[in-house]
Design a protein around this nucleic acid. Structure first.
Lengths: 342, 342
DNA sequence: GTGAAAGCGCTAACAG
DNA sequence: CTGTTAGCGCTTTCAC
């Protein structure tokens, strides 16, 4: 395998000049550049990125810690983030935390091992008490999710509370009063479950309606379709009356719709259903699913851009400015699974 | 940031001994090991993985090149591969090729830049004529997909042809004769589209039925639900009679089902529908989707294991043995979207 | 079992 | 605009 020194010798320049050419340093005579590139070509030389990373102290790689790619929301989010990173010449290693505390703690350690320069982290199991884990980590961190934990860390958020409140309001406006919440978790995490439940609760309480425990559908096994169906079944089996469903993500909503239809309830006449995330599938269920579009693309672009800026600051020795809080635009997408508003 | 030399000084040993302890070298006195680990702890030392990679010439990272994570099949496959890699202490960078030739060629170059030690590659756009691109790459490569291109490369395959044939046979056995194929691509790639179409064609021809062009639904924009719906609409709009649908993946099948239902066809009475991949969603559509389970977990485990073995061979200077061809078990999962066989 | 010396391939810092 | 010098932090090699 040829090295930079081989290329330099062949081009009749120093190794540093080869380095400059390959790094895109602008002040190089055109003829020199051409000679270097020709030598690179002739030798079939490829830059040893590991050596560069080692010497420069940076890897050009960022970590993306999310629970699970198999969930369409995270898969689609990951695609957006990979695309945004690519536009900035950053690479991404995905760190699926598997909804475990252990997985999330491991992800937070990666940058310290110099495996990645910084981290985009979508927490699902950490709790408020873990806030200090996120301070003074010594590397740039961008948190995805409502601003929690710490106001010293950059956040890019998804309006979890507002979205769930809007979803619930939509059903309330249509006169529904027996609205189930599907996707409850027993663990008191700071993830979307807590926040979306808060939005649901706030919407009910604003109209003087108390939360009825029998209407809460639990999905501790994860926010998959199957668990949505099971949670819906559990609620229905309790014998409680139901005329609306707010599910904490679209997969749960689609599972709940399946269960409702199996039991002969018609949607939206008997039961209105709202999801959250606006995954592609939501458009093609029968009926099409009303859901909250949390501005995924915006989230991805802003999160990567922000991290990139922090990394550049670190490279220039700047001790990053004030933490940023960006809230993506949220939008309720009304489709066939909810009754028209009066 | 403390270095290995700092740890060595503190523990009263040489850097090499620290290195040995951290690398799990077995022949070390227990007391020495304990002293080293204590020093590591006291200093909060973390191994600089970049330096290790640079010196050792390996990264401990493998690449996973797939078209797009937002497609549940690839998202779920990626999760399985990430899990299998983790079990072997390998890390993974995901390289979404975006269904572009350019993206696939870029992915093939990554290992040469020492960004990853080897590659698991699920090609979607390369054609048979590209076969020589895959020979003598100088790093371990495992191809996902029917054995094509080259018999010099390891393959882990998914029975694309057999699966599609079985899916088509199921409908034929039920007496259906006007079976649409949804998911055709104009580009003559070596990806699943070509192979699954081959299975469809073979099944028809085995019964002396000619392929009717009007029954072919094109999805050049990608195998998403929306394109499944559009392709189905195009077939139906042509006025041709349809009593069965073989879709080349589940997302297409679910989109096709949506379109059929919107137009008042009942499934499976009027039209039987079969998908491919057995993604989680397939279980929760109405009706539940009959589909081909291509043995995804098996594919992931075998692919990673194989690559890991090749990497170990490289490390030991072994010039890898004969190429492996592993075919995962395929299984037709019959659900409500197809008529019972007579 | 452990240490000393050498150097992987590149880029930072500066000189010219 | 380009070259020189030095050294990043670790592992390889070999000695003991």
């Amino acid at each position: 395998m040829p090295t930079m020194a081989d290329v330099a010798r062949r081009a009749g320049v120093s190794a540093k000049t080869v380095s400059n050419v390959l790094a895109g340093y602008p002040y190089i005579r055109e003829s020199t550049r051409a000679r270097v590139l020709a030598a690179v070509d002739e030798l079939g030389y490829e830059l040893n990125v590991t050596a560069r990373n080692f010497r420069s102290g940076r890897t050009g790689v960022i970590g993306l810690a999310v629970p699970e790619l198999g969930q369409p929301y995270f898969g689609e989010l990951a695609d957006e983030i990979l695309a945004a990173a690519r536009r900035r010449d950053l690479r991404v290693v995905v760190d699926p935390t598997g909804f475990t505390r252990e997985g999330e703690l491991a992800a937070l350690r990666e940058p310290r091992r110099r495996l990645v320069d910084g981290l985009i982290f979508s927490p699902a199991t950490l709790v408020q008490a873990d806030a200090d884990l996120l301070d003074g980590l010594g590397y740039p961190l961008v948190l995805l999710g409502e601003q929690m934990f710490s106001d010293k860390v950059d956040h890019v958020t998804m309006h979890n509370v507002d979205g769930a409140r809007a979803a619930t309001d939509l059903l309330l406006d249509a006169g529904r009063r027996r609205i189930a919440a599907i996707g409850m978790l027993h663990a008191p995490t700071a993830g979307s479950a807590t926040l979306r439940f808060r939005g649901y609760r706030e919407a009910l309480e604003a109209r003087g309606i108390a939360v009825d425990d029998r209407l809460l559908g639990w999905a501790d096994e994860g926010w998959h379709r199957g668990n949505g169906a099971r949670a819906m079944a559990a609620v229905l089996d309790s014998g409680v009356e139901v005329d609306g469903v707010v599910a904490f993500n679209d997969a749960l909503a689609l599972g709940a719709m399946y269960e409702l239809q199996v039991r002969g309830r018609s949607i939206p006449q008997d039961v209105g259903v709202v999801g959250f995330d606006d995954i592609e599938d939501a458009r093609y269920s029968t009926p099409a699913l009303t859901t909250v579009d949390p501005g995924r693309r915006d989230v991805a672009e802003v999160a990567v851009g922000l991290l990139d800026r922090r990394l550049a600051d670190v490279a220039r020795g700047v001790v990053g400015g004030a933490p940023v809080l960006h809230v993506a635009d949220m939008r309720l997408v009304e489709r066939g699974s909810t009754p028209a508003r009066p």
